[in-house]
Design a protein around this nucleic acid. Structure first.
Length: 435
RNA sequence: GCGGGCGUAGCUCAGUUGGUUAGAGCGCUGGCUUGUGGAGCCGGAGGUCGUGGGUUCAAGACCCAUCGCUCGCCCCA
């Protein structure tokens, strides 16, 4: 049996054309994050298992993470998310970092589960956090950034929607208004999280099953639906509308509106899976019918840094995965033609290898990326190969060029070719690069 | 972990109620064409039909198992 050429299940090989797309996406993500004043950091891909056990219950560690023992018998996890690592880093220098702290990272993450559309075992994620801001200016900034990211890929507001909710408001709604116990509220939150996947009668049946008989009699289901059907904060029952979380929430929505972000809305069914969120949560949903899903999500988690035994730091963060982003870009036809990193493909004619060396070296010294074609090929073959590699220009060097010190530059797209000095060639190509 | 769908050339796929030596398009490659390609024409390479077993005179096709891919469920980072 021959060795398999397939990559490990749920992981991807990045052939140059794939890597080019990834580099394109990552450079946009970095560009936007840095435009908002965020600094890039990184952390190891391996972490001690304790980091995850402390945070969010053991289920995630046991079932959906890569866990193994190292040679020193330590239990090690391949990071399934970045939030615990960045919280650890911030806690480690709690005193000396200047707040607000604006950090981003592009970690690769692993989860052990069956791959499916939009969810692989290895993926990359833009992870953005702002530490040290307790007001909603933090949420505002991150939602603005998320919006700027999709815009930077050429998306229009009709292609996606930003949905915002408050965990704190929902906890109050479920416990004080609907009348659930804390345990019931937890189950109900999980149920609400998958509400859009099931139909309404099924949801009502499942919701009903969470309730005790007395709660049922007290009309808990109707109250629940009153909350979940609200399209605006002011649609909420008046007891809830008066809750103190609503004031800040309302001002956040108004600020977003003032930022000309039109496709944002309050959605009481947005819960997010993680337990560590403490107030505002948000996600960006792809509105394309073939990919109707959350593409990124985040929210406020004020309690995590404090788990490391230092004073807590209020934090808002989000994660944006590369797989769903790529689906989004492709599905909405936002993918640009990506050129090679190589500026020039060099074609030699005749036995000029020795003489061409100097010219190539000069082109490189002047800043061009030059790939040298194999000697002895026909020009036509050089052209085809360069085009296949998405290289825009071919420089031809033969006896004539060397004699005149004027070199033929061919633009593969326009098919034009002319003779120029090396300096001129460099400036033409640099102009092209800049476009 | 659970369920559905699909595995035939590098890719996309065809292959009749089971019947001789398994096909097409694209791609790759050689030539027409040794200083300007993309078209056209003529050639060529490339397949243990995912793997193993079974039924049959005969299996790419039918049955079982297994592996892989994929879509969904669970879970959601």
């Amino acid at each position: 049996m021959a060795l398999s050429t397939q990559p490990y299940k749920g992981a991807r090989d990045f052939y140059p054309e794939d890597k080019r797309l990834q580099k394109y996406m990552f450079s946009k993500l970095r560009q936007v994050a840095e435009r908002f004043g965020y600094e890039e950091y990184d952390a190891p891909i391996l972490e001690s298992i304790d980091l995850y056990l402390a945070k969010s219950g053991s289920e995630i560690v046991n079932e959906q993470t890569y866990v193994f023992k190292d040679r020193g018998d330590r239990e090690v996890v391949i990071r399934p998310e970045m939030t615990p690592s960045v919280s650890r880093m911030v806690a480690g220098r709690r005193q000396e970092l200047g707040y607000p702290l604006r950090w981003y990272s592009l970690p690769n993450l692993w989860r052990y589960e069956r791959p499916q559309r939009g969810r692989l075992r290895e993926h990359w994620q833009l992870n953005v956090d702002v530490f040290g801001l307790s007001g909603t200016e933090a949420e505002l900034e991150l939602i603005q950034m998320a919006n700027a990211i999709y815009k930077s890929f050429g998306a229009t507001p009709a292609m996606y929607e930003i949905r915002v909710n408050s965990r704190r408001l929902m906890d109050f709604a479920l416990q004080s208004y609907v009348g659930l116990t804390e345990v019931e509220a937890y189950s109900m939150a999980k149920l609400i999280d998958r509400m859009h996947k099931i139909d309404r009668t099924e949801f009502i049946g499942l919701a009903d099953a969470v309730l005790s008989p007395s709660e049922r009699e007290a009309g808990a289901v109707e109250k629940l639906l009153n909350v979940l059907d609200a399209k605006k904060l002011r649609d909420l029952p008046s007891v809830l509308a008066a809750h103190d979380s609503v004031v800040a929430f309302q001002s956040l929505l108004e600020a977003l509106d003032a930022s000309q972000i039109s496709n944002v809305r309050f959605d009481p069914t947005v819960m997010r899976g993680f337990d560590y969120y403490t107030d505002i949560v948000f996600e960006v949903v792809d509105l394309h019918p073939d990919n109707n899903r959350a593409m990124m999500g985040g929210g406020r988690y004020d309690g995590l840094v404090g788990l490391f035994g230092v004073d807590p730091v209020p934090t808002v963060g989000f994660g944006l995965g590369d797989v769903t982003l790529q689906n989004f870009i492709e599905l909405h036809d936002l993918l640009p033609k990506l050129q090679s990193e190589t500026d020039v493909y060099l074609a030699t004619i005749g036995d000029v290898a020795a003489g061409a060396q100097l010219a190539v070296a000069q082109l490189r010294e002047m800043g061009l990326n030059v790939a040298v074609g194999a000697a002895g090929r026909k020009l036509a073959d050089h052209f085809k190969l360069a085009e296949k590699k998405h290289i825009h220009y071919v420089v031809i060097i033969g006896e004539q060029e060397l004699a005149d010190d004027q070199y033929t530059l061919k633009n593969l797209q326009t098919t034009e070719s002319d003779k120029h000095s090396l300096q001129r060639i460099v400036s033409i190509i640099k102009d092209y690069r800049a476009t």
